[in-house]
């Protein structure tokens, strides 16, 4: 009697204990599954890739690095990576350079129309890029900026400015105001105080927004697809998406998989290092704005 009761209790208990580990496992499998499958595909020989039933974990003689070699030897993949990195990095710097001062002014200084500007900034974060691409296409043509990095750098700076302004503004609002007051007593002007006192304290917040800006710029697709048509200036997402192969009968699955791995690795590394900052930035930008 006591035995059955206690065994009943433990069996009921053990089920509940399983819920959390199983759900944690599901979250991990859900998040990593597609990426892992892509990685496994990228290191398999073509024969293993098209084997039916599928080869999940390739044996030693089914392993190859040929798909990666193909990307660098027969296509300008290093160039694509450089293009993506250059465009993303430059627009991040510009975005912080223009966005942080604006955020400071909107947080601290009394400017007429401040509320209007903030509402505008908040609303444009919701505009999908398709609404902008026609007007920008005309501008790019009129200014003869097609196949010029500026055709990407300027829009990328702009599309990240709203988030930068919102995140940085909420950061400046949390800075103690005494600090700036005492700097003013010490004879600093607004700009001098910004550069010498506020900016150094702001570095962590700049890193936070900078990472988000970099990610959004690296991932952008529609402008990069439209404004850049020369092969050696394409960014990585566009170049990867266009790896169609010579004919539809011969889709280079392995090469595509290798390209997707290369396109995702930098971002995975960023997430691993800056998880906390990304979460901070996203919640500050979305919730506090």
């Amino acid at each position: 009697m006591t035995l059955t009761q206690s065994s009943k209790k433990t069996s009921g208990f053990s089920w509940k204990v399983l819920i959390l580990p199983v759900s944690v496992f599901l979250v991990v499998a859900f998040s990593l599954g597609p990426i892992l499958w892509q990685f496994l595909t990228s290191v398999k020989t073509n024969e293993a890739i098209v084997a039916i039933p599928n080869v999940y974990f390739p044996s030693f003689d089914q392993l190859t690095l040929n798909h990666y070699i193909e990307l660098f030897a027969r296509r300008p993949f290093l160039r694509y990576i450089f293009n993506s990195a250059f465009v993303a990095f430059t627009s991040t710097l510009l975005c912080l350079g223009f966005g942080a001062p604006a955020a400071y002014a909107l947080a601290r200084l009394k400017i007429p129309g401040r509320q209007l500007i903030l509402t505008g900034v908040l609303i444009v974060t919701l505009f999908p890029y398709i609404l902008l691409f026609l007007g920008l296409l005309e501008l790019v043509k009129a200014l003869n900026l097609g196949n010029n990095y500026l055709a990407l750098i300027v829009p990328y700076t702009a599309i990240n400015l709203p988030l930068t302004i919102l995140v940085m503004r909420s950061f400046f609002q949390q800075l103690p105001k005494d600090l700036e007051d005492s700097a003013k007593v010490d004879g600093y002007g607004t700009v001098g105080m910004l550069l010498k006192i506020v900016l150094p304290m702001t570095l962590p917040a700049l890193v936070t927004t900078g990472i988000l800006t970099f990610i959004f710029s690296w991932n952008e697709f529609i402008f990069a697809l439209t404004f850049i048509t020369v092969e050696e200036m394409k960014t990585l997402p566009v170049a990867a998406a266009q790896l169609g192969g010579a004919s539809i009968f011969e889709i280079p699955y392995g090469t595509i998989a290798a390209a997707t791995v290369l396109g995702t690795v930098p971002l995975v590394v960023l997430v691993l290092f800056f998880q906390r900052k990304i979460v901070q930035g996203l919640t500050a930008g979305a919730v506090k704005g």
């Binding site: 998040s31 990426i35 396109g263």
Partner: peptide, 27 residues
């Protein structure tokens, strides 16, 4: 928590390729 953020950070165009491959009718 870090792992759970990864999908958000990846380029949509590139992960679309990955999903096309997952949904491939033959392989």
């Amino acid at each position: 928590r870090t792992i759970a953020i990864i999908p958000w950070a990846l380029p949509t165009a590139i992960m679309a390729l990955a999903w096309t491959w997952i949904f491939n009718d033959r392989y």
